[in-house]
Design a protein around this nucleic acid. Structure first.
Lengths: 127, 127, 127, 127
DNA sequence: GTGGTCTAGACCACT
DNA sequence: GTGGTCTAGACCACA
């Protein structure tokens, strides 16, 4: 399904949240499709079930999935996709900092540009 | 100098790191200028000296400042050394996350591309 | 595991760093093996947990171990990443000092050269 | 005379000691020649006089110089140059560690060899 | 004065 | 259980 990077400093449950969000947005997991059960995903990723639980709860809180007791967890229909202007400007600020830091570290503008295009292109099939 | 948000989920020392990096990158703290002493900043921010020191140490690891015991902590000259590959890959990872999140938030690849080019152009005279 | 010399002029956390590096380099602690937990080692060495953590953090900075919060600290695989230029230049500096000191001590350049070649040859099968 | 590297983590007085030892061993400062006065060197290096004092005291302790009150500090006649076997083996151990670490960091044996020859050659005119 | 280290002990988040 | 952060307060070495 996807891979975890244990060496990353982002916590495991957050990585799971991010990856599943990505899969949903890329339509690999379409609306109303069923997510793997907690136990199942727990085995696949060799991760503690509690950690999966936490990730699913977070996804639910963020409105990406909903849970039906006894049946499983399902992808929500796309509805809440208004662009959150506030969050956008926050992330923009983060990107600004990152780019500034790359300049500070001595990368030329050209190399940064190449890098950004690569990053943008990754899984760039989101339309 | 700047303010801390004690309610924030980012730790105090990280906030200090971020803020000081910001000041350095914006050239408010120019190269070779002296940072406030650990004890001084500790008083100003009403934060334990150990916490300040942790922040300063982190800034040193990231190459933003250098320390002379008995004298103080000073801003490093930008990019005076070889490009720090490790730090670059860390920042790259941050940018990757940011770009991904903009996609989450519903921005099209094209709009993101425009945004990135704007950001890259700012103060583009660093070359 | 190893012993500390409280009378030494090198700080406790540095001694811990050095000792663990030694164990890793000698493959006593192989890649992916788990280090003792902070609290555990803290008890064994009768040293404050903060001190152990400082040592572990330093080892992480130097690329010898990685940390997963909630799981533990693990030995990194050797040279899995790009050669860390920063760390290399630090070690180079240490070597420079060592060679200089041998000259101080009266060894001729030729004898030093022989010595270095011997050292380089040891376990030369790493290539 | 020589330069200090404030960014180095070795303390200033230690750098001074090392540099002067080097000058003595390279015979730039021959036996019985006079060292610059504390005040003089203090100005040249823009360093606190106390720091110079400390360096001179250390050099005296190590037998490299002697001080005549009111006259100045002078280089000792070379006498104590028996190779200190114990110290040699300590330094050798440090070099062994450093070389092992470079291997760990992914440098090939050949590159290390080149590096060591460079280091050995620096100021290699010690005979 | 400066930074650096260490302890004791508390609290939090993640697995 | 794991690591991570923070405080309060002490002591040391260097400039």
């Amino acid at each position: 399904m996807f891979q975890l990077d244990l060496k990353s400093r982002t916590s495991i449950y957050e990585q799971i949240v991010d990856n599943i969000k990505e899969l949903i947005l890329a339509d690999v997991l379409p609306a109303e499709s069923k997510l793997p059960s907690v136990r199942e995903l727990s085995k696949v990723l060799t991760v503690n079930p509690n950690t999966i639980q936490k990730a699913y709860r977070e996804l639910e809180y963020q409105g990406f999935v909903y849970t039906v007791a006894g049946l499983g967890t399902f992808v929500s229909a796309a509805a809440e996709k208004e662009v959150d202007a506030k969050r956008v400007s926050e992330v923009t600020e983060e990107l600004r900092r990152g780019i500034r830091e790359l300049k500070f570290l001595g990368m030329t503008q050209e190399r940064i540009s190449v890098l950004l295009n690569e990053l943008l292109g990754e899984r760039g099939d989101l339309r």
